[in-house]
Computed example of a mutant assay.
Amino acid sequence: MTAGGPVLAGQKPAVGFDPYADHVTASSIRFLYALNPLAKLAAPLPAMALLVFVRDAATPAAFLALSYAILLVGVSFTRRLVILLIAIPLAAAAIGLGFALWTDPAKVDQSVVIWQIGSWMLYGGALEVGLATGLRIAAIVALALIAGMSTTGPDAVRASVQQLRVPYRIGYTALAAFRFVPRFGYELEVIRQAHRVRGTHGGRGPFSAVGRWFGYVVPLMAGAIRHAERVALAMDARAFGAYPDRTERHLVPFRARDVVFIGSFLIASAAIFTVLFPWGL
């Protein structure tokens, strides 16, 4: 991904090519990749905060549909996106059923009985409350995916440093720490393969699995310490933190398109809340 957006199909990377970011090959219609990360965070944030206080099912369902429409148009159609779009409604249904079972029957409408086992009854009012809660959680998650599915960690840090004036010592140190996670995964896989080659897998069963994991700890910690030392030496060699400001090689500008996206999303959110008005009189 370049500093100004995604690498389009058939287009060569610009000079500001970032080898550490997750590169996305997408057409120009996938507009979310070209937006500033802060715009994708700021636009749905008011709706996410207000959804915490709504109690109906229509309002979160409307925001869930809006989020799905933006994701289907704005990001590339990948397997991970399909899994998430299918998993969110299923999770909402499961959460809604769980909350319906936990809801106090004395505080809901008891005119409709959905399910009865002996003296225990599941009322329609309890199911309505549970599904509304599940939809509310699903809508908040879907709104968060607008930024999560189209933003890389380096770009989010750069935008925070450049637009929010977050000290670069904090931003890039946190980014370096987060990059330890995939490094640990890679080294763990190498250690497991080395153990298999040497025939020290330890057999099968739960006790053997525990023994194998204990055998991974020492080499994994040694590799982590080596990697941390190399990162620290590399940062010291580049005089990281020696000056109050840092020259940015990759810029993440805040453009007019970002203002338009934030304004459009806020208008759509206000329209949904105004039409449905989930708080009553």
Rank of each mutant, 00 (worst) to 15 (best):
A57D: 00
V73P: 05
G10M: 03
R198E: 04
V275S: 04
A194Y: 10
N36Y: 11
V197F: 05
M48S: 13
L50D: 04
G134D: 12
P89I: 12
Y123V: 04
A132I: 01
F184S: 03
A144F: 09
G74L: 07
S150Y: 06
R169Y: 13
L266F: 10
A232D: 14
Q162S: 10
A174Y: 14
A65T: 13
D104Q: 04
L101D: 02
V275E: 01
P44Q: 07
L233V: 13
A106C: 02
G153E: 11
L188W: 11
A132M: 07
V217L: 15
S150W: 05
A139F: 09
F277W: 14
G134F: 10
M221L: 15
T25W: 12
F240T: 06
G98D: 05
G203D: 04
K107N: 13
I86T: 12
A94H: 01
G202K: 13
Q116T: 10
P60S: 09
R212T: 03
I83R: 14
P278F: 06
D109W: 07
R183T: 15
F277M: 11
S150V: 00
E189N: 13
M149I: 01
G215I: 00
Q163H: 14
G148T: 00
K12F: 01
V112S: 11
A242H: 06
R183F: 15
V252E: 05
I95E: 07
F178R: 05
I70M: 15
F17N: 07
A58Q: 12
F265P: 01
E229V: 13
L45Q: 07
V181G: 10
F240C: 03
A228H: 11
R196W: 05
T59W: 11
